[in-house]
Design a protein around this nucleic acid. Sequence first.
DNA 1: ATGTCCATGTAATCCGTTACATGATTAT
DNA 2: ATAATCATGTAACGGATTACATGGACAT
Lengths: 195, 195
Amino acid sequence: MALGDAILACLTERPMTGYELAKTFDNSLGFFWKANHQQIYRELTKLRDRGHIQGREVVQSGKPNKLVYTLTPEGRAALRHWGARPSSPASIKDDLLVRLYALDSVDIEPLRTDLMARLEYHRDRFARYERILNKRFPDGTAPPGDVGKLLGLRMGVRYERAVAEWCEEALDTLPASAKAASVTPIGGSRRGIKG
Amino acid sequence: MALGDAILACLTERPMTGYELAKTFDNSLGFFWKANHQQIYRELTKLRDRGHIQGREVVQSGKPNKLVYTLTPEGRAALRHWGARPSSPASIKDDLLVRLYALDSVDIEPLRTDLMARLEYHRDRFARYERILNKRFPDGTAPPGDVGKLLGLRMGVRYERAVAEWCEEALDTLPASAKAASVTPIGGSRRGIKG
DNA sequence: ATGTCCATGTAATCCGTTACATGATTAT
DNA sequence: ATAATCATGTAACGGATTACATGGACAT
C-alpha cells in the first residue's frame, strides 16, 4: 500500500521518470524506504491506471526516450488522504538478531566478523547523514517545506548511531563469553548442540 | 529465506507447535522479526518437506489436536550454515518518514497526532524491554547461551529510546514551522501545493 | 449472549527480489 | 576493450498480508 504513496510523495517535488524515481529510492527517500526499479515500473503502471499520475513521453536522441510522470489532482488528493492516516510502527526485522537469538547453535567467529562489518556500515551511514545535514541545513533549521527532510535525516543519525554503538557493545560482550564457553567447556547449557 | 531459519532458531529452544511459534513471533523473537500464523504454517510445511523439522501429532481432548515440530539433525546443520553467512543490514522502512518527506503536501495535524501516538508506543516498548532486562538479567550479565538474548534486548532498548527521543524532537520542531507556515502564509516554497 | 483462547489450515492478493533483455553513449 | 550511465521493460518466484473457515472450552 505504501510504495504507491511513496512514489506520489516523490513526485510532489517534480515530475520524474521511473529511472529517476529508482535513483531517489536508492538515495534520499531510499534512506527510509527501499525499492528497486522493477517494483517502481510495476507500481507506475498501476498508478497510471488509477489516474493518480500521468505519463508524457519525451523523445530523446542518442538516449532511449523517456516517460516523465506527473501527479494528477487525483494523485495529490490520494496522497493527502494517505498522509492523514496513522502510520504503523516499523519493527526491527534484522536477521543478525535472529542469529544472536540462537547463539548456542551457531558459530561465533562468523558472527563477530559480521558484527565488525555492520559496525563499519552503520558508522559510515552515520557519517553520511551528518555530512548531508551539515551541508543542507548548516544552522540546524529548515524552510517550512523541508522540515520533514531535516527530521528524516535526524532520525537517520539517531538510528545509525544507536545501532553502531550497539555493535560495539555486542563485540565487547561476545568474545568474553565465547572464550569462557570454548576455553572451559563446562557444557553448562541444558540443551545439546552436538547433534 | 530468513523466516525458515528464524523458525529453526526458535525450535533450538524446544519443540513447538505452529501456534506456539506464532506466539513467539509476536513476543520475544517477534521483537526483531514479525511473522503471523499463516506465514508460519506455510513455512513449516516447507521445512518439513526439506527434512529440517519433524512433526509429531499429539492427540488432545477438548482441544484440537496439535502438531509438535522438532528440529532434525539436518535442520540443525542448516541453521548452523545459515548462521555463518553474513547478514544484510536492515533499512528503516517507516512510512511516517515518507509522510514527513512530503510534508508540504499533507496536513500537519494528523501527523502530529500520529507522532504523539508513536511517542507513546516507543516509550512503552522501551519500558517493556527494560523491564524484561531487569527481570531476566538483573546483574547485566547472562549465561553463555543467553548472551544473544541479552544483546537483542539491549538493541531493543537502544532502538526504542532513539525513536522515542526523535518523536519528541519532531513534535518540538513541527508545530513551530507549522504555525509559521499557517500564521504567516508567505508561501516561500518554490513548488505549488495549491493545485 | 459475546468474546477470547486453543489450533489448524486455504485462497487471493500484493509486495519484493532476481534474472533476463535491449541498445546507444561516455568514461577509463 | 571494458564498464558504467541512461532508460525501459518482461517473467518467474518467493515473502507478506488479509480474509475466510472451523469448532469446542471457558470466562464475563
